[in-house]
């Protein structure tokens, strides 16, 4: 798997958020995006994941040298981010099975249970998300993002709302991802910046 960004530029009205961002990532590589508040870290993450279109430039994903079409890209992508909200009126299990079904009609329940146990939420899956703390919701987002074993994992503020134990679980996930696939992190935490083999500094 290869992620190729060329000359990414984003303007909001007349304001330039960032310009001419380029990088190349292959399996086993990681990229850290840093920058002060408002420098466009989340905007860049949204562009990489396909939620926003850049004003100019391209972001392309290749698998075995072949360009992945937009509709297939999502199957290779996992995203955890503060602006990616879950359905708080549904239970954690209903949320997770919904996301699983968006990829495949058959849900691998044993994998979901294994991931829930891994993030420390085994046994709470049938509670509505509105009864969860923000840290617990962040853990559910990891289950949703990791369920399909993404080859590109994008984490925007990966340890936001998490306690020490939760952060430790995330660092294990990060190490696992970089050992096999591609990882992109947007952060300003010194503990997380060290996970990046490549670095994009905004602002």
């Amino acid at each position: 798997m290869v992620v190729e960004a060329k000359g990414l530029t984003k303007h909001f009205n007349r304001r330039t958020i960032f310009s001419d961002i380029s990088f190349h990532l292959e399996d086993g590589e990681s990229l850290v995006i840093t920058g002060p508040n408002g420098s466009g870290k989340s905007t860049l993450v949204k562009i990489i994941s396909g939620l926003l279109t850049p004003t100019s430039g391209t972001i392309e994903f290749y698998n075995d040298g072949k360009l992945l079409p937009a509709e297939v890209k999502y199957h290779q992508l996992g995203l955890v981010s503060p602006y990616l909200q879950l359905y708080k009126d549904l239970t954690a299990w209903e949320n997770l099975t919904f996301f699983a079904r968006t990829r495949d009609s058959k849900v691998d329940e044993s994998r979901l249970k294994m991931l829930l146990k891994r993030v420390g939420l085994g046994g709470r899956e049938h509670d509505e998300l509105k009864t969860y703390s923000s840290g617990m919701i962040q853990r559910i987002k990891y289950v949703a993002a990791l369920y399909h074993q993404p080859r590109i994992l994008i984490l925007d503020e990966p340890t936001a709302n998490l306690d020490e134990k939760g952060a430790k679980i995330v660092y294990e996930i990060i190490k696992e991802q970089t050992s096999r696939h591609i990882l992109i992190i947007a952060t300003n935490e010194p503990d997380e910046v060290k996970f990046g083999m490549k670095h994009v500094e905004l602002g």
Binding site: K46, S49, G50, L51, Y74, L77, L79, Y83, L84, Q85
Partner: peptide, 10 residues
């Protein structure tokens, strides 16, 4: 409920 981006992604 800010779930539109989630839906856009999946």
């Amino acid at each position: 409920q800010q779930t539109a981006d989630t839906l856009r992604l999946v």
